[in-house]
């Protein structure tokens, strides 16, 4: 796995249950070996991590696996979290790495992921569910870029870094994803 330590302060996800300052204190405690602090850290951040993993994988069971691996890697690499970026960004980078690692190991192809069933638990109102399903049906890389940029608000530079692709490629995937979403949603109305 590549070094998950983020290099820029581009957090766009507000973590529930605690401010970044409060989380930083938990990180410090966990870094010293305090398992309870790490558990609290997990409980305050897991929804944000699971939400991203679920959208990236479009598979609840796989998303759970990726969440577990994300926190295992976070525990192992706590010393590398310097606090110069938000914890949410750092965790998201690890999560994206885990999801990508899974797809690499499984030799998944975009054609396959495009045929997957959308997540069973797409949250939100009716129109949100339609959108969630349409996002879940996107090919893997289209989906990853759209989720990071369109849903979570990361700039293309950060999304490209997370996905190990050029910024231009990220923009191209985003454009492609947007067109596919509009086509899909347009045919439903």
């Amino acid at each position: 796995m590549t070094d998950p330590a983020p290099t820029s302060d581009s957090a766009v996800v507000a973590l529930p249950g605690g401010s970044e300052r409060g989380l930083a204190a938990l990180v410090d405690a966990a870094r010293s070996g305090d398992g309870r602090a790490f558990e609290r850290l997990y409980r305050q951040t897991v929804d944000a991590v699971y939400g991203l993993c679920l959208r990236l994988t479009a598979n609840p069971a796989l998303a759970e696996d990726c969440v577990q691996q994300t926190y295992l890697q976070a525990w192992r690499n706590l010393d590398r979290f310097r606090g110069d970026s938000a914890l949410s960004t750092w965790l998201h980078r690890i999560a994206v790495n885990e999801v990508r690692g899974h797809f690499r190991r499984e030799s998944r192809h975009e054609v396959d992921s495009a045929d997957e069933e959308p997540p069973a638990r797409a949250p939100g109102s009716g129109t949100d569910i339609d959108l969630e399903r349409a996002i879940a049906a996107l090919p893997e890389r289209n989906r990853a870029v759209f989720v990071l940029v369109g849903v979570y608000g990361y700039p293309h530079e950060e999304a490209a870094r997370m996905l190990d692709m050029a910024v231009g490629t990220s923009k191209a995937h985003f454009h492609q994803a947007r067109r596919r979403l509009m086509d899909r949603l347009g045919t439903q109305t």
Partner: peptide, 22 residues
């Protein structure tokens, strides 16, 4: 579409407690 995507819920709780496994 973009506005709607940006307003999608970011935090989704897992269906079960994953901490014991972690």
């Amino acid at each position: 579409l973009l506005d709607q995507a940006s307003r999608l819920r970011k935090d989704i709780p897992p269906e079960r407690d994953l901490w014991p496994g972690i």
